[in-house]
Computed example of a mutant assay.
Amino acid sequence: MADHSSPGDGSVLVAIFVLLIIAGLVVRYIWWVVGAAALAGVVYLCVVLTRKAEERRLRDEKLAAEREFERARLAERQHRWTMIGDSRAVYGEKSSAPTADITGTDSAPDTDEPIATLAATKAELDALIRDRPQGWEQALFASILMQRAAPLASRLRDSELGYTEAGASGLMSAGELASTVVHMLDEMMRTIQQLDRFMMAPAFMAAFTAPDDVDEDGADPEAIAHIAHRVMDYHERLLELSERCRGISAPAYYDDILADCARMLDAPLRSYREFIDEFAAVIRALPRVLPHASGPVDLGSLGLYISIDNTLHSRILRRLDEITAPRRA
């Protein structure tokens, strides 16, 4: 059998001596050790607090910018209502439906140049393109939006109300529901981003101010009609997304998630409704406004502004985390 060596007494004494030296150093410099540890803790705490303060500052700046943008948007809308003689400029947005004239008269100076009005039929659209009255470009765009939205009125109302059909026979599990809802919210965000890029493309506004060799009035009616239809194609995508959400069949315990999801997916549709209504109000006011104008009329910025409720979005994600979290035994 092989022999196994064991440490001698000298080795043991050396080890004990070294330990005593280390212990003595620790005792002697204990406050230095404690101070270094405390300093490291303070530095770490400062880094964490600084990072959180920076995150809070960026969040506050973002919220302030959003509030400022909303104030500017509302101010421009108020200016536009005043310019077109909308009663809401005086009595407020929720006081009543928009009316024709806050001055008590719809009369306008006589003018030989015709002014565009909204077209309700294809024949009227063709007449707009053929006759080219004042403001025909904007009237053509708004008319197509309204004609495309009109057949969807019942479906849009269901979305606004959060109406759901009778549930299907199969019920989604928590994991399936979470995956489906996250996918739909992501699809909504992606569609909104695509719409934003589409409307910000140079060719979008160029359709209204094309070179003179395209049309004597400087606009391309085919391009205007094309972009109007494409804007409404995005609208129908968002509506179908809302309907898919409201068609999900899941246990009653998840009803709050589905209700919040439906509310969030209806937000872009509400923005569309506001945009189309505002645009149509401007076109209806043209016969009252343009005869008095001696030059370009500034009615403010009229855009399709889609805002996302971040609080609602966060609440949905928290609930999805809750229902998919592993249960403790």
Rank of each mutant, 00 (worst) to 15 (best):
D60A: 15
D60W: 11
D60V: 13
D60Y: 13
E61R: 15
E61T: 12
K62L: 09
K62Y: 13
L63Y: 14
L63I: 15
A64G: 09
A64D: 10
A65N: 04
R67A: 13
E68I: 06
F69S: 04
F69E: 07
A72Y: 06
L74H: 01
L74P: 01
L74I: 08
L74W: 07
A75K: 14
R77Q: 12
R77K: 10
R77F: 01
Q78P: 04
Q78F: 04
Q78T: 13
W81L: 07
W81R: 14
T82E: 12
T82I: 02
T82Q: 08
M83Q: 15
M83L: 10
M83V: 14
M83C: 06
I84V: 13
I84K: 10
G85K: 05
G85N: 04
D86W: 05
D86S: 03
D86F: 03
D86K: 00
D86V: 01
S87K: 03
S87G: 07
A89F: 03
V90Y: 05
V90R: 14
V90W: 09
V90H: 03
Y91W: 15
G92E: 02
E93C: 06
K94V: 08
P98F: 14
P98T: 03
P98R: 08
T99C: 02
D101V: 12
D101M: 15
I102M: 11
T103Q: 10
T103N: 09
G104K: 07
G104P: 06
D106K: 03
D106V: 11
A108S: 10
D110F: 11
T111Y: 11
T111P: 04
T111Q: 11
D112V: 13
D112P: 05
P114M: 08
I115C: 07
T117A: 11
L118K: 01
A119H: 11
T121Y: 11
K122A: 15
K122H: 15
K122W: 14
A123K: 12
A123P: 06
A123M: 00
E124W: 09
E124Y: 09
E124N: 09
D126F: 08
A127R: 04
I129A: 12
D131P: 03
P133M: 13
P133V: 09
W136P: 00
W136L: 09
E137M: 14
Q138Y: 08
A139L: 15
L140G: 02
L140S: 00
F141N: 01
F141G: 00
F141H: 11
A142H: 01
A142R: 03
A142Q: 10
S143N: 02
S143I: 05
M146R: 15
Q147T: 04
Q147V: 08
Q147L: 09
A150C: 02
A150L: 14
A150N: 11
P151H: 00
L152T: 05
A153R: 13
S154K: 14
S154R: 10
R155S: 00
R155T: 00
R155L: 04
L156V: 05
R157Y: 00
R157K: 12
S159I: 01
G162A: 01
G162N: 04
T164E: 06
T164D: 01
E165Y: 12
A166S: 11
A166Q: 13
A166K: 11
G167I: 05
G167E: 14
G167N: 04
G167W: 07
A168F: 08
S169K: 09
S169D: 15
G170W: 12
L171H: 13
L171M: 14
M172I: 03
M172T: 01
S173Y: 06
A174W: 05
A174G: 02
A174Y: 06
A174R: 12
A174E: 12
